[in-house]
Amino acid sequence: MTWHVAEDELRAYARGELAPPLLWSADTHLTGCAVCRARLAEVWDPGALDAAWERLDAELDAPRPGPFERLLVRCGVADHTARLLAATPVLRRSWLTAVALLLVLSVLTAHGVHSDTFFLAVAPLLPLAGVALSYGPALDPTYEMTVVAPVHGFRLLMIRTVAVLAAVLGLSGLATLALPGYGLGALGWLLPALALTAAGLALTPRLGPVVAPSAVGGGWVVLLLAARVHQGGGAGALVPFTAAGQAVAAAVAALAAALLFAARDRFDQSHQTRQTHQSFRSAA
């Protein structure tokens, strides 16, 4: 044997911290080198062995996570974040199926009437609803435990918001490919979607998790009806889907995001005050 494993690498190997390719090299070498095996025995920490067995035991004893969590971990999401996302109510198969069906219906309507308007009107409402339903006492059964946890409420909200946006915007993006018309116009739903979602979240600390998204969604419908009336039923894109409308949507999204960030600490306590008030009055 013309070489031996270096002292620091041997210690790292013993601690289980040696990374490939040095690990592979050390493994192969140790198989054939009695000197290095003896040196390894000297630097080996019995406590580390116990800890390693304990880790292995804990891993083997933990129930296998569900398919959604396994998929997230395979995609590189940390296991603890994957579990937080698995507990997000709207990331369930039933919700995603409902979103997909609604998008299919919108696409079929677009083909039927030879206009993207219905699709462009509906698509921004989906992430607004999805994000609104991903937190708050209405749908999250563990809301009361979550709100008193040391993990900051805003951080949890953002984790869930990003996941819901990724899922819903992804589905909407796929549906866009099936629209009759191509080009940038078919993506006219994207900026309004971000604007509505951000506005719904920004208003939540003031109006609550039900009224805020409902008001924003209602406002969007009213805006579209007003644009339709203003257009007088003529052909062409409605104002929100023109370049000027898209610029306004981008500005609203940016402003709402800034307001949301400024109000982040307001997500750290319960939105249940109104409910508590009602239950208190009925019980008293």
Partner: peptide, 23 residues
């Protein structure tokens, strides 16, 4: 107390442990 019904006791308590910063 509310639960995610599809979770097992292990998964649910693990979820709460993550909320308690045990990463």
């Amino acid at each position: 107390p509310g639960f995610h019904p599809d979770f097992t006791p292990f998964e649910f308590v693990d979820y709460v442990a993550i909320l308690k910063e045990l990463t």
